[in-house]
Design a protein around this nucleic acid. Structure first.
Lengths: 202, 202
DNA sequence: ATTCGAATAAATGACCAATATGTTCGAATA
DNA sequence: TATTCGAACATATTGGTCATTTATTCGAAT
């Protein structure tokens, strides 16, 4: 295995350990010592791989985000129609987070990680990717004639924020009620998008 | 004029002055002395009307919110159909805030005043009212057959949060782009609500 | 009932020392 | 040569005291 490759793997294990420790103690209280201990290595060794604590946090979180995003992307790739892709995107993102305790804990500790204000978002690159993904689904749906021809450039970021809001609520208050909110929220947005040739009242 | 009535008026002027000072300096930096000076009265006199600084802030903001809400309610009352009411609600709320510099400044200083998490919302009563207003419009629309029969109890709070998000964005970044986002956001939600018997593609 | 000035209580900020933590570095190792 | 480590160094945090500011109370005056 090439050196650079080996290093990459090592860095990933460091991020994983860091994520775990940060999830438990939060950025302030977690120490480099804690993370080194988690890895069974000396503090100083870490500095062979990272610049400083802040960067470690950012990169570790970014890594967690990217992993999340990859899973969602894979799930979407398995679908053909835009409408299905939209639904799968929403549900998979939700489901993945349900299974990643650490990332969830970090998100709950520090909701500002999600971009309320895209301008000051430390993970803008990743979130831009998410919005791009959403954008492509919207465009596909519009091309295929199942979505209304909305202003994609304006609507995609909004929908992303709305989704973040839904996720935050559902995980902050994981009760029946918020579960329903999530489903109904997705349904509302999807209905806003869809073109319905004919609709019967009931 | 009755004593209690006179007192009420006085309290309102105090709230108004407080709002102005808090808007300029923020809660921490604004002092009771500043507010007293704004009113041209002794600090101690304020304590005849208020309990403490914190309460003054909360009540002053609540007063500002209520005023805002009243204006929106009035505008809605002038409309008949649910769909129009919905639109007017969104636009009037936006427009009112545009005209109230102090309230806007306070909101921008402290976005948490708006309930991301309804549970820990200090103005839950007022926001409950807002959601109730929205709920009644939704129900009316559903009864009248122009809105889909959504789960109002789940959708109303979500729409409220979404609206808060739109407002925050638009005022935090008052540029062309966000203006468009506001309009498109409202349009998306309204489309999600509406029943369209027939729709032609174009 | 309402206002005020003076007095008191509580919070805040500046400063310092002690400790904990982040970061660097040269020697050791594989 | 790439990687690890322990010790040394630098920086940040904490706890504690004092001085100052600010919040709040109270009795006298209107």
């Amino acid at each position: 295995m090439r050196r650079a490759q080996k290093r990459e793997i090592k860095v990933e294990t460091i991020y994983k350990a860091a994520l775990k420790v940060f999830a438990e103690y939060g950025f302030k209280k977690a120490t480099i010592g804690d993370i080194a201990a988690e890895l069974g290595t000396a503090k100083s060794t870490l500095y062979f791989y990272i610049k400083d604590k802040r960067e470690l946090y950012d990169k570790a979180v970014a890594c967690g985000f990217r992993h999340w995003q990859d899973k969602v992307r894979d799930a979407i790739a398995a679908e053909k129609e835009a409408e299905r892709q939209f639904l799968v995107m929403a549900r998979k993102a939700y489901e993945y987070l349900a299974g990643d305790r650490h990332l969830r804990s970090i998100l709950m500790r520090d909701p500002s990680l999600f971009p309320l204000h895209p301008a000051q978002d430390p993970y803008s690159e990743i979130n831009r990717d998410s919005i791009a993904l959403l954008t492509s689904i919207l465009e596909k749906g519009i091309r295929e004639g199942c979505f209304r021809p909305v202003n994609v450039a304006a609507v995609a970021p909004l929908m992303f924020s709305f989704y973040v809001l839904l996720i935050q609520r559902t995980y902050m208050f994981p009760d029946e009620e918020h579960q329903i909110m999530f489903e109904d929220g997705i349904d509302l947005i999807l209905s806003g998008l869809k073109i319905r040739e004919k609709q019967s009242r009931e």
